[in-house]
């Protein structure tokens, strides 16, 4: 799932400073799940904006909506009337949602209210960790299902760097596991440590050509 977090209020406020009526648009999928841009966050941000602008004597009118998936044109189209009513759209969707909205309503400024951070999973309630770097060349089969591309601070492919802390923690953050220690534990448990001994050739960074495109097999 895509993880995002809300931008600092100051930044958001600055981006809508010149607008009087703003549509605050949430997304009902990934960013709802990661508490960054669902209906609850839409309500909070809209209220906070009204309070801030009201206190500054520069009142703002907010409209609120949450689209099931902002990265789908068909779903975004459903809110076109609300968009038409507003001077600008403040989107709490991931970068993909913001761009879909911006493309569909290309005469309106569509402004991001969250920073899209990574693809991850919840470690516990309210805490998400990065799991996948969308490299386009998955080699989790060789690493016991732990991706060192993103879970190692240096993205190393052939084992840990020399900085692993006591207890198998990362040199740059004692709260984070060294990915290669995790790989080792996992492969050891499965009796497949030989996999870790194999040389991993330099990564094929061409696997995802930017901009990425995936064409599904024709049905």
């Amino acid at each position: 799932m895509i993880i995002a977090e809300r931008k600092p209020m100051e930044e958001i406020e600055e981006s809508v400073a010149e607008y009087k009526k703003v549509l605050v648009a949430g997304c009902g999928t990934c960013v709802t799940v990661c508490w960054a841009g669902g209906e609850k966050e839409v309500g909070i941000l809209a209220s906070q904006l009204r309070l801030a602008r009201g206190a500054a004597g520069n009142e703002i009118v907010t409209l609120e909506t949450t689209v099931e998936r902002q990265c789908e044109k068909e779903m975004v189209t459903e809110i076109k009337d609300k968009v038409a009513e507003a001077d600008a759209v403040l989107s709490l969707a991931c970068g993909s949602g913001v761009q879909t909205m911006a493309e569909l309503f290309d005469d309106k400024p569509v402004l991001p209210a969250v920073n899209t951070t990574f693809i991850g999973m919840p470690e516990r309630e309210g805490l998400w960790v990065e799991m996948c770097g969308a490299c386009g060349d998955c080699f989790l089969d060789r690493t016991g299902g732990v991706c060192p591309m993103v879970r190692c601070a240096k993205g190393l492919l052939n084992g840990p760097c020399g900085g692993t802390r006591k207890g198998g923690m990362c040199e740059i953050d004692p709260d984070k596991d060294c990915a290669w220690v995790l790989v080792h534990r996992r492969l050891e448990k499965q009796g497949r440590l030989d996999l870790m001994r194999e040389y991993v050739t330099p990564k094929n960074f061409r696997a995802v050509r930017r901009p990425g495109k995936v064409q599904a097999a024709k049905a």
């Binding site: 330099p202 990564k203 094929n204 960074f205 061409r206 050509r209």
Partner: peptide
């Protein structure tokens, strides 16, 4: 872009 060169898999 590395795509046009002779090390197409390199990280840009």
């Amino acid at each position: 872009s590395v795509d046009v060169g002779d090390h197409k898999e390199a990280k840009q």
